[in-house]
Design a protein around this nucleic acid. Structure first.
Length: 218
DNA sequence: GCGACGATTCGCT
DNA sequence: GCGAATCGTCGCG
């Protein structure tokens, strides 16, 4: 995909994130641009892969059944908040909280295509010349300088450390693929089959097509 | 307190 | 392709 974002990209508003249909939101966030501002510099990248997590009735979601803990409380904040948690003790995961205050919906960002600040991303990742730079949820957070202490911050402020912009890019329906989410444990049952992973077909920054086969595990 | 585990990644075989 | 790394969170006692 040729990435040539509109330079007049507009910061997405709180109202945008209030939509209660998190699956729709996961799909809509494809083609949007995530921007991070840190002391080391600014990085921006187009979102090319997402997954939806729907609080109340989704066994794959940390907040399933209304579970409210020290970690999940961020998911209940108002749409437009960052939910960052640590996976496997090492990898930060970046989620966008959606829906209204009290609704635990979130969209996991799984793959991005660098636009600006690529050199800084390469320094942070200690690598160059590979799509592996940002093709995975744990990779892109490192590349863009997203850390766990950004958990709970707003994405809609003019001076926010993490922002998401509407670039004017619209991904054609025909280029959007969907499929089962990745990494679901066998305990989430039929929820693992929900086609709530969205990505741009053929984009090299989509996380590697890991084997996703939950047949016979429930 | 304590043991088990995870929305993953990377290096080695 | 496989397994270790690595630690915050969670559930239980």
């Amino acid at each position: 995909m040729l990435m040539n974002p509109d330079t007049t990209a507009k910061l997405l508003t709180s109202a945008y994130y209030q939509n209660e249909d998190v699956v729709l939101m996961a799909r809509d966030l494809l083609g949007k641009m995530i921007v991070t501002h840190t002391p080391e510099g600014t990085c921006s990248a187009i979102i090319v892969e997402t997954e939806a997590y729907r609080g109340p009735d989704d066994r794959g979601c940390h907040a399933f059944g209304g579970r409210y803990t020290e970690r999940t409380k961020t998911m209940y904040m108002s749409g437009g908040t960052a939910y960052v948690y640590t996976c496997y003790g090492v990898h930060p995961m970046m989620n966008v909280v959606t829906g209204q205050l009290g609704q635990a919906h979130a969209v996991l960002i799984r793959g991005v295509e660098p636009v600006d600040g690529k050199e800084l991303m390469e320094v942070r990742r200690k690598m160059t010349g590979s799509h592996s730079l940002t093709s995975g949820p744990g990779k892109l957070t490192i590349a863009m300088g997203i850390t766990r202490d950004m958990d709970g911050i707003s994405l809609v402020e003019n001076n926010a450390s993490i922002q998401i912009m509407d670039t004017g890019i619209t991904i054609p329906e025909a280029e959007i693929e969907s499929g089962p989410r990745i990494g679901m444990s066998i305990h989430v049952g039929s929820c693992s089959h929900r086609p709530w992973r969205f990505y741009i077909r053929g984009n090299p920054w989509v996380s590697k097509p890991l084997k996703v086969d939950y047949t016979g595990k429930w």
